[in-house]
Simulated scan of single mutants.
Amino acid sequence: MTSASEDSALDTAPDLTPAAEVEWQALPARARPLFLLDTSISLGVLFGVAGVVSGTLGLGMAAGIAAGATGALLGIATGIWIGTKQFNHCYWRLDEHGLAVRRGRLWQRETRVPITRVQHLDIKHGPWQRRRKLATLVVHTAGTRHSSVNVPHLDADDAQRLRDRLGRQIDLDDDA
């Protein structure tokens, strides 16, 4: 059993384990609807407007409205499919080198943020995220191109923990 002083020492020490030992973390299941909403609304509006414009130009107003409604439904269905894929293939991990985010399945993209490049950290809570106890961690990095990395729809406690650990490591690097 550990004493209170040992527990507080564990809380303040950065828990950065070697990359080989750290598992990729999936997003919480309650983030799935937000991925679906993001993509289905965007594609529904885009496909709906495209349907209205193409139908109106070719056949008249009534055909344009029917084409718009069909396009919107097709866009929503496509958005749900894409949102599900995005949710299922989005992972993060924190190790001794920094934060890594992996997205995609066919075209997999892994973004690594070394601790030495982290400038500051933000946590964003949108209204839907607050309702589901989620947050977006924004890691601002040194440099001009792609100077921030977003980890969307994290568990709010995980986002806070990541921000605190990366922040402590920044402070330790500054003191050295």
Rank of each mutant, 00 (worst) to 15 (best):
L10F: 11
P28A: 13
L74F: 10
W24M: 04
R32K: 13
G58T: 11
L59D: 12
Q25L: 09
M61K: 12
A63R: 10
D7A: 07
P18W: 06
S5D: 11
A4D: 15
V45Q: 02
L57I: 00
A69N: 02
D38V: 08
A29W: 04
A63N: 11
D7H: 08
A66D: 01
A66Q: 06
T12L: 12
T39W: 09
P14A: 15
D15L: 06
Q25F: 07
D38R: 15
P14V: 15
F35G: 07
A66K: 03
T39S: 13
G71D: 08
G48Q: 00
L36H: 06
L59H: 12
Q25I: 09
W81E: 02
G55R: 00
L74P: 02
S8K: 09
L10A: 14
R32L: 14
T56W: 00
V52Y: 09
G75I: 11
A13M: 10
A29L: 10
S54G: 09
A29F: 07
V45H: 03
W24E: 05
V49L: 15
S40A: 14
L10E: 14
L34D: 05
V45I: 14
L27E: 05
L37P: 00
I80D: 01
G75F: 10
I80R: 04
T70I: 12
T12R: 15
A67Y: 04
L34G: 07
L43S: 02
E21W: 01
G51C: 01
D38M: 12
G44E: 05
A26K: 14
W81P: 03
R30C: 04
P14D: 14
I76E: 05
L46S: 13
G79M: 08
F47E: 10
A63D: 09
A67R: 01
G79V: 09
L16R: 03
V49E: 04
T12V: 14
I82L: 13
E23I: 05
A26D: 12
G55F: 00
A26H: 10
S8A: 11
L36T: 07
L57S: 00
L34S: 06
A29H: 04
A26T: 11
A62M: 15
L27C: 03
G48F: 00
L73H: 07
L16S: 04
L43Y: 06
A29Q: 11
E21I: 02
Q25H: 14
R32V: 03
V45A: 07
G60Y: 04
A19V: 12
G79L: 10
G79A: 07
G71C: 05
A62L: 15
G68L: 06
L36P: 04
V49P: 07
I76F: 10
A67E: 01
R30Y: 03
L46Y: 11
V49G: 08
D38S: 15
W24K: 04
E21C: 01
D11Q: 08
A13V: 12
